[in-house]
Computed example of a mutant assay.
Amino acid sequence: MGKGGKQMSTYSFEEVSKHDKQDDRWIIINHEVYNITNWARRHPGGSKVIGHYAGQDATDAFRAFHNNLDQVQKYLLPIHIGSVQKGEVNVNYSLEKDFRDLRQTAEKMDLFKPSYLFFFVHLAHILAMEVMAYFTLYYFGTGWIPFLVSVCLYATVQGASPSWWNHMHYQHHAKPNVMGKDPDVRVDQLFVVGERMPVEVAKSNKSSMPYNQQHKYFFLIGPPLLFPVYFQFMLFRHIFTRRLWKDFIVVMAFYVKFFYLYTNILGLGWTLVYYEIMRVLESHWFTWVSQSNHIPMDIDRDTAEPWIKLQLKATCDIEQSFFNDWFTGHLNFQIEHHLFPTMPRHNLYKIQPLVKSLCKKHGISYQMKTLSQSFIDIVKSLKHSGELWEATLHAHHIS
């Protein structure tokens, strides 16, 4: 009997797994079963991020995104419908217990507490580069050298909707490299990635690109156009379709400030050129850094892997150094960032040895690369996936 006299039922894992449809979604958190069918639409983190775990045990994913469990408990009570049957066999029990113990250790080490000094210095560093970008043109003039120096400095500044970014990023963290769920691998209109996507696309007869050449045209349409074209379109589409007027004001404040300052120096035409070059540079940085940790890793359909296995299959780390930490924004610790997405980035290196030890104990592969090798592996993986698509397409046509 539950609180308020409501009769509670017990369910097997198999029974819960059947409730994974759009209009019928259950999840498991700490052996308790919740019906999220209607609640998902009101979920503060978005309906998709919680819906991606429909029919599955979401315990570790739930814990990863919610630091304050008492705050979210009030939302769980009304949708609680029962418990998992006692005696249900969990083959991943030992791994999951060790990971949850690791999280408790991180909490005791205060690794989830941010350093305000770190983020103040980080913000000051970004603002300083923005000021330097403006005064480079103001003081040295608008010749090609100061123009390009200024663009490179300004490329560290972004103007985007927080809601849109969270909408995309939370889904990525919830199910990284999972086809149909992670928006970062929803790329089959232009690229095929991993081992499975090339085969499925080839057999579907819906191929839209010469994917066997994708490791070449990636340099032309991947890093250069992600921000200037795709992100710009999706940003405003998200704002207008969801009527996020506060986000619209924030984004427009960025554009008003930018064009007000730079049009006075460059004129409207060259300000537009400046903006596009800046976005292209920014896009290069983001694409190479973000995809170096993911594209060369396993990409597959959802197999309901335990949290730690899912994240380790989809992510890798880049070696630590002062330059790598700065250049990647401390996201060279991508494994730790994915396991503990709410952990401040300046603490990720502290938990790394304990994560390595846990992976070694359970025989889970922990990959770490040099920065250059991680970039090379993007191209190599695209070439491999393109060749797999071509071979499958040829075999499919023959058969």
Rank of each mutant, 00 (worst) to 15 (best):
V178Q: 02
V178A: 02
M179L: 15
G180L: 06
G180A: 05
G180R: 03
K181L: 15
K181R: 14
D182A: 06
D182R: 04
D184N: 10
D184S: 11
D184I: 09
D184M: 09
V185H: 07
R186M: 10
V187I: 15
D188K: 12
D188Q: 14
D188Y: 12
Q189T: 00
Q189R: 04
L190S: 06
L190K: 08
L190V: 08
F191S: 01
F191I: 00
F191K: 00
V192L: 07
V192P: 01
V193N: 03
V193C: 12
G194P: 09
E195N: 15
R196S: 09
R196M: 09
R196W: 07
M197W: 02
M197K: 10
P198G: 06
V199F: 12
V199A: 02
V199D: 07
E200K: 14
A202F: 08
K203H: 11
S204Y: 10
S204F: 11
N205G: 13
K206G: 08
S208T: 13
S208I: 01
M209E: 05
P210E: 06
P210I: 03
Y211N: 01
N212W: 15
Q214P: 09
Q214N: 04
H215N: 10
K216F: 15
K216W: 14
K216V: 10
F219G: 03
F219L: 11
F219Y: 15
F219M: 10
F219C: 05
F219S: 03
I221N: 05
G222L: 02
P223I: 04
P223L: 08
P224Y: 05
L225S: 05
L226W: 10
F227K: 08
P228H: 11
P228Q: 09
P228C: 07
V229F: 15
Y230W: 14
Q232T: 13
F233P: 01
M234R: 13
M234Q: 12
M234D: 08
L235C: 13
L235A: 03
R237Q: 12
H238K: 05
I239T: 03
F240N: 04
R243T: 02
R243F: 13
R243S: 11
L244H: 14
L244D: 14
D247W: 14
D247L: 11
F248L: 15
F248R: 07
F248V: 03
F248E: 01
I249C: 10
I249Q: 10
V250Q: 12
V251Y: 11
V251E: 06
M252E: 10
M252G: 00
A253M: 13
A253F: 13
F254A: 03
F254S: 08
Y255Q: 04
V256Q: 01
K257H: 11
K257P: 02
K257L: 14
F259H: 13
Y260S: 13
Y260M: 09
L261P: 00
L261W: 12
Y262M: 06
Y262R: 06
I265V: 14
L266Y: 08
L268A: 14
L268G: 00
G269V: 07
G269M: 06
G269Y: 14
G269A: 12
W270H: 08
W270D: 03
L272E: 00
V273C: 13
Y274M: 04
Y274K: 02
